Every structure is written in C-alpha cells, then in structure tokens.
Computed example of a mutant assay.
Amino acid sequence: MNTPRIFAVLGNPIKHSLSPRLHTLFGLQTGLQIEYIRQCVEPANFNEHVRQFFANGGRGLNITLPFKEQAYALAGSHISERARAAGSANTLWQENGAIHACNTDGVGLVNDMLRQHVTLRESRILLIGAGGATRGVLPALLQAGCAHLHIVNRTEDKAHALAAQATVPPATQAQVTASAFSALQGNWDIIINATSSSLSGEPLPLPDSVFRADSVAYDMLYTASGDTPFLQQARAAGALHTSDGLGMLVYQGAESFRIWNQIEPDAVPVLAALRTELTESR
C-alpha cells in the first residue's frame, strides 16, 4: 500500500477551513494519495511546529491567519518572488533540508477573475483594506497590467504606506494611489473587498458612485450561498457582476498543490463540487 503524502493547513482559528476537502478533491483528480489535516497552532509554537511537521515527513503546509508573515520570516532567504513582493507566505515546503515559501493568494485571485472573463489589463481597480490580504494580492494585480490601483482604508496612513511600498512592473507603469474612505472619488472597473467586513455584516462606507452597472465587485471572503454583505451592497448600488472568494481559495490551493507535487490540477470541477457541497450544507 502506498504511503500517503501528508499536508496540513496551520492557523488560529482553523476549524472552518475548507482546505482539507479542497486538497482531497485535487488528490482524487490527480490520482495522488494524500492526507490533509487542519492544525490549530499557538503563536509561540508556530516555528517549532513547522519544523517538526517537516522533520516527521510532511510534504507541504498552507498557512492562514495569523501566521503568514511569520511563515515568510521562517523561510529566510528561500522565498519566491511572489512571497517577496507580498511580504508574506501562505505555502511552505522543504528542499534539501531548508524550508521554502511562496504566496499563492495573488495568483489565486487573478486566475479566478480570468475564469470569470474579468479584464484586468488597463483596468481601474479599487482595493478595499490595507492589511495582509491586500498585501498578498497587490503584486499580482499590478503584474496583471492594471492601469490604476487605488487602496482605500479606514486608517489612511496604512493605505498610503502600502501604496508607497508597491513595486510597479516597468512594462505596466500602473498608477498606485491611496486615500481614506472620506476622500474616495470616481467610479471603478473592479472593486475588491480585502477586509473582513462581511464577517461582521458591517457595511463599508463606500459611496454608491464607486460602482457602475458594468463594474465587477469581488469579495475575497466566501459564504455557502456565494453572497456576502459587501456583494449585496454592490448590487444595491447597481453593480451587475459580483463574486465571492471561493474561486480564489480554490485557485490558490491549486497553485500550492502544483508547487508541492509538480502536478497542476484542474480547479474548475473542484470549485463546482465545493460550491455544491457548501450550498447543500446550508
């Protein structure tokens, strides 16, 4: 009998993570025998937990809140360009005794948008929030060739600091700006909620004028119904194309799976299966 490849997702809290089911489906699709588990870790034990996981033969780790920056630091110089640009890591593996890190959040978001035929090149993007989720996807959105990316945040200084740190690819010459909500002007092609506002149900202080009928509203969080308070807010303001972040979860997981196993799974049927399972569990 083949020994399964061992993977895990580390976070705190972690019990609601869909990653075990997601990677089980990838394993079934690709014919790999895998075992993927959730592990809740105390912050003080994170580094030792990671080292022990790989010492025991583990093949790969996904990292979620609040450990992405700690995972980035743990890998030292063995970090991918994606992780370096984001300043955080959500995917760890070991090569020649050294822990390596990548960040697949940005490519997950971009690939899910491309699946939905969203035009990123030359688009004007409003990115809501200035925390780790924003930092993780900002480089990929710039790499995709957007024309203008604006970061809006309740704490304006954080938005400006993140905009100042952004590295614009020379070939794109994108404009990166920032403001508080009170100074927000104009309308946008794509509006992305990278905050946790939809968890609390708290409406964002966005004027309806940021949305157009042909705007794309994307919430990086996901729900069983595929709807969130932010997406409801966007539709009420006239946006017709809305999406939650389940596809982003699936595509970032697919990229992690590819890194660990050198096999690229097909995300589309796995996304459909997860959406069906979530809907039936309501």
Rank of each mutant, 00 (worst) to 15 (best):
R212A: 08
S123Y: 03
P20G: 09
Q252F: 00
R115D: 14
N45C: 14
N111V: 09
E95K: 15
H78Y: 10
A8S: 10
A237P: 00
P203R: 12
R235V: 06
I263N: 10
A144I: 00
L32S: 09
S179P: 12
N261Y: 06
R124N: 04
R84L: 13
A174P: 11
F46I: 08
Y36R: 03
T228K: 01
I99Y: 03
A8T: 02
T276H: 13
R5F: 12
R59Y: 03
A55W: 12
T155M: 13
P205E: 13
A174M: 05
H241T: 11
I125E: 00
E202R: 15
R135P: 05
A130I: 02
A236W: 12
I151F: 03
P13I: 06
L114E: 15
P4H: 09
L120Y: 03
A147H: 06
A85H: 04
S197M: 05
L231M: 06
M220P: 10
L32I: 15
H49V: 12
Y36V: 04
H148Q: 11
L246V: 01
E122Q: 15
V137G: 05
I128D: 01
R84W: 10
N193Q: 04
I79N: 02
Q233Y: 04
D112P: 09
Q52Y: 14
A71V: 07
Y251W: 12
S182P: 14
A86H: 02
A166F: 03
A234L: 04
S77Q: 14
D244Q: 07
H100Q: 11
L28F: 12
K158T: 07
S281R: 15
F46H: 07
T24I: 14
